[in-house]
């Protein structure tokens, strides 16, 4: 494990006995650390994206190669594939930190766990949700999504995937202590993803049919705002429970 070497280096230096409250610095330190760690295991970064592409390939093979059929399915298929790809990447969110003990150090640190967790989730989104969003047009073309729907797809994914990361991290935090958390994690998280999926695909469909999609994007934004404010609390609570148990 080469994680340990990277743990110490980015935390702000303190004089002995001094405890300073620096949410901004701890957030930045966590984010940089996570991105560094991820860049050293690049294959893990690619996997969700390949999965995303493969799931989308299955639909023309399994349902029908007809453009008319595929173009009606496209918004939902791209969204479901993005959702599953996010789900796949969640299990490793806290796993290596839990295994090598650095998670325990984060819980013990005097800095607010809320901020640490937010940094980790943002890193997760930058490494999965954002690439998925950027890759979505490729899938949209493969599935004959009408060109009018493209912006709706990108915008809805841009607003929706951070919420997926936030909600998913709750499940990851609750199951990190379990040896076989993977399937259980999807069981816990998938029902909670449904509102995001509904509003996400509705936005794309509205864009395709030329209806205003602002309302759906606003709802996705509302879900994101609520997720940003509330889910770090649940994630932090889940991590404390998992580590102490």
């Amino acid at each position: 494990m080469n994680n340990k070497a990277t743990n110490a280096c980015h935390l702000p230096e303190l004089k002995s006995g001094e405890i300073s409250f620096q949410p901004g610095r701890i957030f930045w330190a966590t984010l940089v650390r996570e991105l560094n760690l991820a860049l050293r295991r690049r294959s893990d970064l690619i996997n969700p994206l390949v999965f995303f592409l493969m799931v989308a390939t299955l639909f023309p093979l399994g349902v029908s190669p007809e453009p008319s059929v595929l173009s009606t399915l496209a918004p939902g298929v791209v969204w479901v594939a993005a959702l599953l790809a996010t789900l796949l990447s969640l299990d490793s969110l806290f796993r290596s930190d839990f295994d090598d003990g650095s998670l325990e150090q984060m819980l013990l640190s005097p800095q607010p766990l809320f901020v640490v967790v937010l940094g980790k989730v943002l890193a997760h989104w930058l490494l999965t949700g954002l690439p998925l969003t950027l890759m979505a047009p490729l899938l949209a073309v493969m599935l004959f999504l009408p060109a009018e729907g493209m912006w709706g797809l990108m915008l809805s994914l841009l607003l929706g995937t951070p919420t997926l990361s936030l909600i998913g991290a709750i499940g990851a935090a609750l199951t990190v202590g379990l040896r076989k958390g993977g399937v259980l994690l999807s069981l816990l998280v998938l029902p909670l993803y449904i509102p995001v999926l509904i509003f996400g695909t509705a936005a794309v469909e509205a864009a395709v049919t030329g209806l205003p999609l602002g309302g759906f994007l606003a709802l996705l934004g509302a879900l994101l705002a609520a997720g940003l404010a509330l889910s770090p609390l649940a994630i932090a609570a889940g991590l404390r429970i998992s580590v102490s148990g």
């Binding site: 709750i170 029902p191 909670l192 649940a234 609570a237 429970i241 998992s242 148990g245």
Partner: peptide, 15 residues
């Protein structure tokens, strides 16, 4: 631990 974890999950689902 099971009870606490489940409680967090239930409260999240309450949404």
């Amino acid at each position: 631990t099971a009870a606490q974890a489940t409680a967090v999950l239930v409260l999240v689902g309450l949404v």
